[in-house]
Amino acid sequence: MKKSLKRLISAISIASVLLFWYLITDGLHLFSSYLFPSPVAVFKAFVNKLTVTVPDGGTLFTHLVASLQVALYGYFLGIVIGVPLGILMAWHRKVDLIVKPIFDLIRPIPPVGWIPLMILWVGIGQSAKAMVIFVSAVTPCIVNSYTGIKQTSQVHLWVAQTFGATRRQMLFDVAIPSALPMIFSGLKVSLGASWMALVAAEMLASTKGLGYMIQMNRMVGRADNIIVGMLMIGVVGAILSAILGLVEDRFVKGRHV
């Protein structure tokens, strides 16, 4: 299918949701405009929130920046530790034997389950959130890098060996490039998980950020601001994964026709 046609279909689908939303709110007045504001009201709240700090102590932009900072910080920490650890576990039997049991035990704990402990240790704030995001990000990075390396084809390793490759060359020139698509899919899952954990963490343990903003507006009954916050979370999440997609296209070659 042509790219322009795909874009057109996406645009039509988003436009029809907006139209439907408008119809059941401002059009037919099926709900109280206080509980379910129309798209027009939400847009007004959005413009308003760009400059006004009431009732949550910050403009939309300050909340967004706070969220992005902490999300990217925790996410990159998760990558920097998770990817090499996953690769190492898959490549060295000993590392695998030592790390695997600890990892298997910690893995089932949902990232939000760490929040109470983090609050106790570092208080409500950016570090507590960053730790929670790190925990959400690191797991998919480890799992996917590990699986990717383990799936390296035996024939590829044979070929490298017959060319006299050292074990180091086999890791860096064969196993890692062959695992790259898998590693990238881990990065994508991690990104989604980080962004979701962020919102959860901000609702429980924070003084700023998009999650905090929607939580505060619930307390004062501002559905319009809540929806602005939610849409912001959705749009920024989509933009982040699109950027990651571009990075992937740059690095992963020869896998799609």
Binding site: V155, W158, T162
Partner: peptide, 16 residues
């Protein structure tokens, strides 16, 4: 040994 080359059955090319 690099003095012995091998051509494999299935495509053993590096897709990347």
């Amino acid at each position: 040994n690099p003095d012995i080359g091998v051509v494999y059955q299935k495509t053993a090319l590096f897709p990347w």
